[in-house]
């Protein structure tokens, strides 16, 4: 666990890690099967009750 090792990790794998995470997030958000779920969720806040 040397300094160089950490710096190497930060500078190289850090980037891949971010791209990887970003890929997962985008895939989840844009996955066609999820569309219906998200549309429902977006409208769900209007179904709550204690509206006057």
């Amino acid at each position: 666990m040397t300094h160089d090792f950490f710096v190497m990790l930060s500078k190289s794998w850090g980037l891949f890690y971010l791209i990887f995470l970003f890929g997962i997030a985008v895939a989840y958000a844009l996955w066609p099967a999820n569309k219906e779920k998200f549309d429902r969720a977006a409208k769900s806040i209007f179904h709550d009750q204690d509206e006057k």
């Binding site: 971010l18 995470l21 997030a25 985008v26 958000a29 844009l30 998200f38 549309d39 969720a41 409208k43």
Partner: peptide, 25 residues
């Protein structure tokens, strides 16, 4: 905000992507 506007959030998907963007960056 969507509640007061009476309109669902413009893009629910974008809110998910920006959530993770903010969390990891």
């Amino acid at each position: 905000l969507p509640k007061a506007a009476g309109r669902p959030i413009f893009s629910y998907r974008m809110s998910i992507i920006s959530f993770w963007g903010i969390t990891f960056m």
